[in-house]
Every structure is written in structure tokens, then in C-alpha cells.
Design a protein around this nucleic acid. Structure first.
Lengths: 213, 213
DNA sequence: TTATTTAATGACCAATGGGTCATTTATTTT
DNA sequence: AAAATAAATGACCCATTGGTCATTAAATAA
């Protein structure tokens, strides 16, 4: 948001404020976590005074709730719609789902933040954890289950114990998100390479199809 | 720690205090996260006054450093020793490594706490993140790499892109740890079932060896 | 132009909690 | 038994920060 010196005086922009404040909050939460984030810092980055934040949000916690609502829900609705209609073999659908999860949830910094806060301070937001589980996790799991069942029915997939724990399939993606937020400055992770390895692993496994011994 | 009414008066136990305080801290950090944990609460659970905590630890942050040192390092040294010597095929070694990671790092609450704090408040402890990466992550990765190379050399494992990203193999275990700390109250995760599915997935993949179509 | 409305401000308040230290008391030494 | 040592205490200090509200000023109506 550019601003010359003469533009410094206050402007009244009731409509734009909430999204601007949420964006700033997302940034600060990502950098410092929920507890360490200061409302005044969020206000500064949004270009408003602290009091203005409380004009639009009840409390710091309501700010995080707003972030979840504005950045998670619409994305996942789109994800679900796209994949439910997605034609093709079960293998193609599975690849599509995994790629969508990476693009929409893992690679997008705004989405990762929500995951991070829920992991680290979930006990502070039991209702939001339940909400996130229902809207994002359970939704994705359901899609995954459908694809797996279809694949087994059509003989594309083996019948095996991963059917009892479908989330094991998406595990590496979660790890990639964690890695990006924790160890990336020490050992950078390239999402494209990682995604490729992930798909290769879950499709074929590790064992050689024709072992020497 | 049992204590009758007559035993309530203060005792001087210089040797036992640090470990007791660390244990209490581990509990409170697990429940509330680092930022939200109160030193007075930690002291209360350790059966001492707040001042006593500062008799043994410089600061709240030093308390977390102590937790990492006392609970992580010895475990991983053992893990590395065991596996480095472990005989058998690469497949057996890989299974052994994955199982050890589950038992020593994922299933043990004391160890999970460290992971959680590092994920959520890593920016507060850059030195500890680097330390954890070097001592635990890089150590385990090195073992994994050795096993994979041996497996490929011996023809047991396919040669493929997961070699470029060995951590994709351990991804589901990290996800299991996260799940336990975040969603377990909503949808409990059984480690034994999950581990079985995990091993099955990484060894064989999903695709059917003899597809119908 | 003047009056009215309401978005925006930031000085201020109050609670919280990390960290200190003078005092107390358990233990050891003489 | 008295003195010396050091472990343990918790009342206290104070920096931080979430949240409030009387005041200011931008936009709109009269």
C-alpha cells in the first residue's frame, strides 16, 4: 500500500478495512505466532491505529477467527467442487487431489499460517479446531476415501491397510508445510521436487518390482 | 510425588530439582504452549516456589533449552547407535528405522512437546531449531539415506525420485504426531494401526501389481 | 456554509506475568 | 549448642500489552 507524505491524513474506508486488517494479521501471526503477535503491530501494518482494529474485531481471538473464515472456507469449497466432478481414473483423481492440496493448502503462506496457529495454540481455540477439522480435514478425507474405494473397485489400487488410515497418504504434504515454517532457512525445501517424490512414493512404494535377491 | 501434611515444610534437594522442574515444564508446555505457560504454574507442579525455578534456570527460555537437552539428545544418540549397527536387509533396516522413529519421537509425549514448541515458536529459538535439526533431523536423514542407498545397490529398492527427498518417507509419522496434538480429541488416532498403514504404503505404494484394466 | 454523523485516533487503564531479592529455614560445620 | 552456609521462599517490582473511550476529523446532509 503506497502512501506519499501528503496522503498521511486519515481516510474513512469502512469496506476495505476488515480485509486489510486480516491480511496484516496473517502476516504477523505467520512471523510471530498468535501469542507473540501484538495488536499494535498488526494495526501498524494495516495502516491504521490500534483502536481501529477493535472497531472491526471484538478481540485478538476474533481476528484469528476472521482469518480462518476469510482464507480457508472459500478455498476448500472450491477444492471440493473441482475434485468431486473430476473425471478420469482413480489414479488421475488421486494425483489431482494431492496436487490440489499442495497448491491450495500447503504452498500458500496464508493457508499455512492457519495450520500453524491451530497446531501451536489449538487449545485456545477448541471451536476453531473442530471447525477446521470438519471443513478442511474431514472434507478432504472424504474425497480421498471415495477415490480409494473407486480405485480398489476398479482394480487400479491394491486392497490394503492404508484404506483404514487414508490420511497416511497425505502425510508427507503436512510434513512439507511444517518444514517450510520451521527448517526452511536451514535446509530449504523445494515443493515441486517434493511433490514429485511424494506422488512417486505413494503410487509405487519403495520396493523393487523385480528384486535381484 | 506423594506428600503428607507433615512433610509440607520445605526440603533442600539440590540434585533432584532440575529434573523435576523440567518434567513439570514439559507437562505445562504440552498443555498450553510456550508463550501461554506460566512459570508459577510450572513451579507449582514441580512442588516448589517460583523463585526456586530461577535458582536452577536463568529464564523461561533456558527452561525450554533444558528440556531439549535432557529429553532429546540422549534418545537420539541411542536411536542412531542401535540402527547404525542393525544387521539385515535394507528393507528390514528401513522398517526398523521407521518403527524407532515412532517409538522414540512420535509416540512419547515428552518428545512430541519439543517438536510442537519448535514448530510454533521456532522463531523465538533459532539456535534450538538449528540444534534440533542437526541432532535429530539431519541425523535421522543420514541414516535413512544410507539405508536407501544400500537398498538400491542391492536391488531391493527401486531407483526413483524419493531418493532426492528421503524425508517424504517419514512424512506420515510427523503428521501422526501433529494429529495427536491437535485433532486427537475429535478423531483419535491409533499409532499401531497408523504405523502399519504407513509401512505398507511406503513399501508397496498404492497401485495394484496386476490391474484389471 | 453549517450542522450532523460516524470512522478513526492514540493516550490511557488494568491485568498479567517474567524476574528479583531480602528473608526464612534446613543442613552442615565447628 | 551455636554459628555458618546455602537452599528455598513469595511478596514485590515493572515492562508489556489487550482493550477502552473521550476526542478529532472526514464525509454527508441540511
Amino acid at each position: 500500500m503506497r502512501m506519499t507524505l501528503t496522503e498521511k491524513r486519515r481516510k474513512r474506508r469502512k469496506d476495505a478495512r476488515p480485509q486489510e486488517i486480516i491480511d496484516a494479521a496473517s502476516e504477523v501471526f505467520a512471523e510471530q505466532g498468535f501469542a507473540a503477535a501484538k495488536v499494535e503491530e498488526i494495526a501498524k501494518r494495516a495502516g491504521v491505529a490500534k483502536g481501529t482494529v477493535y472497531l472491526y474485531f471484538e478481540s485478538k481471538e476474533a481476528l484469528f477467527e476472521g482469518l480462518v473464515n476469510l482464507s480457508i472456507v472459500p478455498v476448500f469449497t472450491r477444492l471440493a467442487d473441482q475434485l468431486d466432478q473430476f473425471p478420469g481414473t482413480a489414479k488421475e483423481q488421486l494425483i489431482g487431489l494431492v496436487e490440489q492440496v499442495y497448491r491450495e493448502l500447503i504452498m500458500a503462506p496464508k493457508r499455512r499460517v492457519v495450520m500453524k496457529i491451530l497446531i501451536s495454540e489449538g487449545m485456545r481455540f477448541p471451536a476453531l479446531v473442530e471447525f477446521y477439522h470438519r471443513e478442511v480435514i474431514a472434507g478432504a478425507s472424504e474425497l480421498m476415501r471415495k477415490i480409494l474405494i473407486k480405485g480398489v473397485r476398479d482394480g487400479e489400487f491394491r486392497e490394503s491397510s492404508f484404506l483404514a488410515e487414508p490420511k497416511v497418504i497425505i502425510g508427507p504434504a503436512i510434513m512439507a508445510a511444517i518444514w517450510k515454517m520451521t527448517f526452511d532457512s536451514i535446509a530449504p525445501l523445494d515443493f515441486e521436487t517434493f511433490l514429485e517424490a511424494h506422488l512417486d512414493l505413494i503410487l509405487h512404494g519403495i520396493l523393487s518390482p523385480n528384486p535381484k535377491k
